[in-house]
């Protein structure tokens, strides 16, 4: 009966945590949507959104209202219930990775022993949603996009797993807090630069972002897997994509950039989340930068890059790590 007395304080904490996280998911999508359009404009020597509000700052809320008030068009020959379920599957696990992400020493919801693996598992849910969306649309473009998405996501999952494993060999734990504590003296980006680069490339590919955005390549597949989705269903896919982007960057920042570590601040238990957010949003900026700088790769190049370069190199990297950990 001990458990019954334990639950009420946790229940209170749970409700606050879930409200903050879901609020953050939508806020992050809004901010990133605005930043992406603004930065894209800057990279292409134009202004980006300027009309709504000061420097177009209200553009995304207005777009959100427009998308939510659009007609829901469900084509005749789609695969019934699966067509509705796909955006729900894309969106429903987005809150879960935030459970284990350590924003600051005092700002982590729960610290699972399998934290890093848990985050990877939740990220790969997106593949299921993308494939379901493409399959149920009964549209050739969507179908090709879905096939590509699955082939690409499973290929780029393996180097991520191997890079996380290389970190795991050094820390002997997969708890997110434990990994950050292990970087007390030196960030792992200095010890494992190859793993960092491979992991970062793979997280761009995992979130289906350019130059690896073959599932939604607009010049060949109109809109790829979400061709048939309009209005709010489309924006659910977009919100999910931005959230997975954020979660991927959180994982990279935790594993390689020392998480919340930085110049000590007063009330460090909570205020050091500033460093964490700075690192994460810097990585997101780099992803947006890559998107508007590099041309899209061809599909066979994309697959061969994963199987012929990233996977052999990450295997070698893992082997070297295993030997060096025992030698030193």
């Amino acid at each position: 009966m001990d458990i019954l007395s334990n639950i009420p304080p946790h229940l209170f904490r749970m409700i606050i945590a879930v409200a903050v996280v879901l609020g953050f998911v939508f806020a992050n999508a809004t901010v990133m949507g605005y930043l992406e359009r603004k930065l894209a404009g800057r990279f292409q020597r134009r202004l980006g959104p300027m009309e709504v509000g000061w420097h177009g700052i209200l553009q995304m809320p207005v777009d959100g209202i427009k998308l939510i008030a659009k007609q829901l068009i469900v084509p005749d020959n789609v695969a019934g219930i699966l067509f509705y379920v796909a955006p729900l599957i894309a969106m429903s696990p987005v809150a879960l990775p935030f459970l284990v992400i350590p924003f600051a020493p005092g700002l982590q919801v729960i610290d699972l022993d399998v934290g890093a693996i848990f985050v990877l598992t939740m990220i790969s849910f997106n593949t299921v949603a993308v494939f379901l969306a493409g399959w149920s649309s009964n549209n050739n473009y969507a179908m090709i996009g879905a096939m590509r998405a699955v082939a690409q996501n499973i290929a780029y999952e393996i180097p991520i797993l191997l890079s996380v494993l290389a970190i795991g060999l050094m820390t002997n734990t997969f708890s997110m807090k434990g990994i950050i504590e292990a970087q007390k003296s030196i960030w792992f980006i200095i010890v494992q630069p190859a793993a960092f680069i491979m992991m970062f490339i793979c997280s761009i590919a995992e979130t289906n972002r350019a130059p690896f955005d073959l599932p939604e390549a607009e010049s060949e597949l109109t809109a790829g897997f979400h061709t048939e989705y309009s209005g709010i269903a489309f924006s659910l896919f977009m919100i999910a994509e931005y959230t997975y982007m954020f979660v991927n960057c959180c994982l990279v920042a935790t594993l390689f950039l020392g998480g919340w570590k930085g110049i000590p601040l007063p009330f460090g238990d909570y205020s050091s989340c500033i460093w964490f957010f700075a690192k994460v949003y810097f990585l997101m900026f780099v992803i947006v930068w890559c998107r508007w700088t590099f041309p899209r790769v061809r599909f066979d190049q994309l697959m061969n890059f994963a199987w012929k370069y990233l996977i052999p190199f990450s295997l070698v990297n893992l082997l070297i790590t295993a030997i060096l950990v025992k030698l030193l």
């Binding site: 998911v25 809150a95 459970l99």
Partner: peptide, 11 residues
């Protein structure tokens, strides 16, 4: 709870 609230936030 996070999963259920995620479904609610999507629905």
């Amino acid at each position: 709870l996070f999963f259920l609230c995620g479904i609610a936030a999507a629905g």
